[in-house]
Design a protein around this nucleic acid. Structure first.
Lengths: 370, 370
DNA sequence: TTGTACGCGTTATCAG
DNA sequence: CTGATAACGCGTACAA
């Protein structure tokens, strides 16, 4: 009934008539054990469903086999997907995930406390920090103290800490080139907060694409937004309150969240998408396939980012490590990561994005095309 | 530069000129320590930012201060909200979350392996199992072995294991009563898979409300759905392919996901919501506020469920426990949980739901009202 | 009040 | 190849 006293390796050893050491060797697949002894121990182990106490293993081995995932609440758009990637990779590894969810909204508590909790306890062998730019000072310190850390964050320019992300500039450029190919020439841009790295990069990509096409960016088509639907809504209002002739034929919105606001405003005002105006977003959040109309956008490979970041982190923690026992047999060729000796140049892993064409975009109508 | 050798409590003791034991006492707030000594130790501790090694504390104390959260991938609708609740409660406790994300889609791997991983390692001091009905056999076994477990799951009728959820029947009943009050009399129901507890309960709630109003459920208004948008879509098609006169004036859909499918189909067919037909869902997923039109639905207090379940679990693990040091000062009166002695009757915590009225519902139009 | 010594469950070292 | 035995870092009876 009650939690029956767990067996220890000592018990197993006794039952098998061997020493602790031998039992341990068998459990760890040490080849230097007599066949018969090995069999005897294994039988006892299986008979009792014995498994070594994780805590003791950690203490003795110096590796907790725990990686921390530091992130804002999971209700943030891309987070579930990223963590799915992390979980999938972790699944066939010997590691587990410790979730540190930070509540930025809760201003009363000092977030550095959360970080202290991590560093302090030495609970995790490594840390995956997702969208935690506000904690960069503390995180940097953790890294300096020698804790393996990988970043997934696009609010600051990648620095010395290993980082996984995308090429925001090039991706934005591609999106705008797509609009140009459709024949649009009056392309507006609703940008993110200018001090955010991603926002600035996407803006630069927008400019670059226009420049390539020999089009000078018009200041009146460039709106400073934020990152929420409301911001998109406000910018849309500003844009469409002008006389019809000065409307853009397409809008490149810096992220999907704001694009939702634009779509909402357009609908309320009876502005048809894509007939009257084409909308393109960025991120490809899960919702974006269900807006009306579904949103054309730049797909970020979030779950892949989670997977690769985890792979990177595990390799930092334990270079000998190949995910799980099975992994060695799988074709899944382990990515070649820079070795420690070459670590002078920081690891920045840029994953490819892709355009997802949905119903919110179409060719520029002739009337607008001039 | 490299991970500087971490200090041990031994070092602290030496630096403060006391014994390990005294240092330990100071760190644990044991009152029986001389004021001066205490100060001396504290100074050294703060000077070096010392914190005890979590692993060692666990091994010595027999409590890992880790709770496992077993759940499907976080991309499942309600999960991020539930976990937000868990994280919020955990945040000011001495515990951390270990995330066990199970990939049901990955049929190749035996899911009982995942569970084995949990039981075996004795890594977590307790388990919160969310939407894991398929693993009930294994979970039950874990519970029998003495592992504290709390369930958040609505696919099976609650049993002996402590459980947090809602009253599906009553909630559904309330939703249908709402429709009746609006004047609807021809109310259809798209149900979930009948072998799911929630689906069956919601169906019974639907019947009960009709019965109260003296309306006999019409078989042709009762459709067997599933749980995905596609299922809702199919049922909607079936419903609206009949002659207009036999259409329902309102549909109570067993969950929001399916309601999305209904909305989608209605839109494609030019059926106006709510003018031609009123739609009411169940769950109040995050998306439901953004559908077109926004969906009237039954709100499940997901984050609150996560919070309460965690509170319950922590109390099971450590009855003396009040969340965090601050908690004792806060007004947040710790809920009174049944004590062990009364545990013969299983703990079932039913949280209240609420109707969220949005644009997809309205009074029955006169023409349809007969 | 403070210090000593042992236990927690494994792994790893070093003789045998 | 196998078996004592020493770490691992901390809590805690027990003795002083």
């Amino acid at each position: 009934m009650g939690m029956q006293k767990k067996l220890t390796i000592q018990d197993i050893a006794r039952l098998a008539g061997v020493s602790k050491a031998t039992a341990s060797r068998v459990l760890n697949g040490n080849p230097s054990v007599n066949g018969e002894l090995r069999a005897r121990v294994m039988r006892v182990v299986e008979e009792h469903d014995f498994v070594p106490n994780a805590t003791a293993v950690s203490l003795a081995g110096g590796n907790t086999h725990l990686i921390g995932v530091l992130a804002p609440p999971l209700v943030w758009p891309a987070l579930p997907e990223i963590i799915r990637g992390v979980a999938e990779y972790i699944e066939d590894s010997a590691y587990e995930i410790v979730l540190y969810s930070i509540n930025f909204a809760n201003a009363e508590c000092n977030h550095s406390e959360v970080v202290k909790r991590i560093l302090n306890l030495h609970l995790v062998s490594g840390l995956l920090a997702i969208f935690t730019d506000e904690l960069m000072p503390q995180i940097t310190r953790l890294a300096q103290d020698g804790l393996p850390i990988v970043l997934i964050d696009d609010q600051e320019e990648p620095g010395h800490i290993p980082w996984v992300g995308i090429d925001n500039r090039e991706s934005a450029c591609t999106a705008v080139r797509y609009l140009l190919e459709l024949g649009h020439t009056r392309i507006a841009h609703i940008s993110g907060p200018q001090h955010y790295y991603w926002a600035n990069e996407r803006y630069r990509g927008y400019c670059q694409a226009l420049q390539e096409a020999g089009i000078a960016p018009e200041p009146e088509l460039l709106l400073q937004g934020g990152f929420e639907p409301l911001h998109g809504r406000q910018c849309a209002k500003q844009l469409f309150s002008r006389e019809r002739a000065s409307w853009p034929s397409a809008i490149f919105v810096a992220n999907d969240q704001m694009a939702y606001g634009v779509l909402e405003y357009a609908e309320q005002q009876g502005i048809r998408v894509p007939e009257d105006v084409t909308i393109v977003g960025f991120d490809d959040n899960l919702l974006s396939a269900y807006t009306r109309p579904p949103l054309t956008t730049v797909h970020q490979p979030f779950s892949e980012m989670g997977r690769r970041a985890t792979e990177l982190l595990l390799n930092m923690i334990d270079p000998q490590y190949l995910a799980g026992p099975k992994a060695s047999q799988q074709v899944q060729a382990p990515t070649d990561f820079p070795r420690l000796s070459e670590r002078d140049q920081p690891v920045h892993l840029q994953l490819p994005t892709s355009m997802v064409i949905r119903a919110s975009s179409t060719q520029a109508s002739l009337s607008v095309k001039t």
